[in-house]
Amino acid sequence: MTRRVPRRARPWVGALVAIGIWELVAVTNAAGPQFLASVPAVARVAGDSPGELLRALGGTLQVWAIALAISFVGAVVLGIVVASLPLLDQLGEWVVRSSRSVPALALIPVTILLFGLTTTMEAILVVAAAFWPIFVNTAYAVRRYRVEHREKARALQLRRWSFYRRIVVPASAPMIASGTRAAIGLSMAATIAVELVVGYGGLGGLVLTAEQAGNTPLIYAGVLLGGLAGWLVNRLFVAGQQRLLAWAYRPGVATPLRARAAR
């Protein structure tokens, strides 16, 4: 086995085996016909209504992308500002630590109370889910690099603006990217969760409607599509990261990791 199956083909083999097990369970009715759709049934649903699935995916991705963009800009700007003003940084220390430990989904009831089942409520939750990992990583990196490079900047007579634009922000970019990568997964999950709660729109809405209609194969099709989309987005992001921040992935340098703690 180890010799006959080439390295690159092995994940495919693993996936096929997983699908085989799934099909076996479905065919033998081990989980009950209502609960697990067979592989051909899921494929048929996907083939019958690709428009519906893709539209649902599009809806999810749209909300997610807009919220992530808002979060990214806000978290990076605030992260830089907070990390650069020690007084603000110290004042905010506990606020940040406790806020970032709250799972965004735990805020669902509060946001519904405040905004009702509206788009605003959805957006706020997804933004909240994506904000913290980016903010914490940005602040951590800026705190570190503005001190580490300060003397060199003085030796080069850089003005504050150039110091941040040319030195501090580029130096922090790999860590900001790592935070963003974590935020991508969290906010994608938050988007679908919020759709499930609100009950319409996106993949969450589709899955919920399918469930109420007893259309089990469509549920699985929706879930799988979500997983696939998440994986693809992640791959794209990592590829972009390695291209744009090639210097951080140069040989002999440890890959920048996500900050484990705020400080």
């Binding site: 060199k152 030796a155 080069l156 007579q157 850089l158 003005r159 150039s162 040319r166 030195i167 580029p170 130096a171 970019a173 921040l245 210097w247 951080a248 140069r250």
Partner: peptide
């Protein structure tokens, strides 16, 4: 006045090309 530090790997910035690293000193 210009300073040359001991550790070149820390005084040059890896995200800038050599030209930009040098040009950084000019304003």
């Amino acid at each position: 006045l210009s300073i040359v530090f001991q550790d070149y790997s820390k005084s040059l910035f890896p995200w800038m090309r050599n030209l930009d690293n040098v040009a950084l000193a000019l304003s």
